[in-house]
C-alpha cells in the first residue's frame, strides 16, 4: 500500500506491504540505515526511533501505523538534548562495536527531553530496554549525566 511518512522533517511516499515494520521501511525504502535490527520482538532496543518525540521500537510497529506522525531517526535528531547526548557520547567514547548505540542515544535523548536532571534510577528505567552486548552501560550512564549537566549549564 502507498503511505506517506514524515521522516526527519521530510515526507517520503513509499509503497510497501501494510504489515512491513517501520524499521525495514526506514532502512530499505527510505534509505536510512542508522536504525538497526537486533531482535525483531522489541526486546533489545536497537531499532529505537522517536514517534512524535516518544521513543518507540520500530521493529514491531507497521510503518502504516506511523503515517501522519513525526518520525525521527538517529540521522535526523537534532534537538538540544540530542546534540548534548551526541557530544557526551563522543567525549566519553561510549561506543565499542557501536551497533546498539543509535537506539541507546534515541532512548537517552527522549529521557532528557522529558527529564532534564535524571537520577541513576531514572536512567535505569529509561534505558533498561536497550541491550548492549559490549556492556558500555557505565559510560552510557556517565554520558547521560554529562549531557544533562551541559543542558542545565
Amino acid at each position: 500500500m502507498a503511505i506517506e511518512l514524515n521522516v526527519n522533517g521530510k515526507v517520503h511516499s513509499v509503497d510497501v506491504p501494510n504489515d512491513k515494520p517501520l524499521l525495514w521501511v526506514l532502512r530499505e525504502d527510505v534509505g536510512l540505515t542508522g536504525t538497526k535490527f537486533g531482535c525483531g520482538i522489541a526486546q533489545c532496543g536497537a531499532c529505537t526511533v522517536h514517534l512524535d518525540g516518544q521513543p518507540m521500537r520500530s521493529c514491531i510497529m507497521p510503518a502504516s501505523a506511523a503515517a501522519g506522525m513525526k518520525i525521527t531517526t538517529v540521522e535526523g535528531v537534532e534537538s538540544p538534548a540530542a546534540m548534548a547526548i551526541r557530544t557526551a557520547w563522543r567525549e566519553l567514547d561510549v561506543v565499542q562495536c557501536g551497533y546498539c548505540q543509535s537506539g541507546q542515544m534515541m532512548s537517552a535523548t527522549a529521557l532528557l527531553e522529558s527529564n532534564t536532571s535524571p537520577t541513576d534510577d531514572d536512567i535505569d528505567n529509561a534505558m533498561r530496554g536497550n541491550l548492549c552486548r559490549c556492556a558500555t552501560y557505565q559510560r552510557i550512564r556517565a554520558a547521560i549525566h554529562r549531557a544533562a549537566d551541559e543542558l542545565e549549564a
Binding site: 532502512r27 536510512l32 540505515t33 542508522g34 536504525t35 538497526k36 535490527f37 531517526t73 538517529v74 540521522e75 551526541r86 557520547w89 563522543r90 567514547d93 561510549v94 561506543v95 557501536g98 551497533y99 548505540q101 543509535s102 542515544m105
Partner: peptide, 17 residues
C-alpha cells in the same frame, strides 16, 4: 579519542546490514 566515535554516533557507520 576513538576514531570510530563520530561515525558510530550519527548513524553513518556502515555495518554489513
Amino acid at each position: 579519542s576513538r576514531l570510530d566515535s563520530n561515525a558510530k554516533t550519527d548513524g553513518s557507520a556502515i555495518y554489513t546490514l
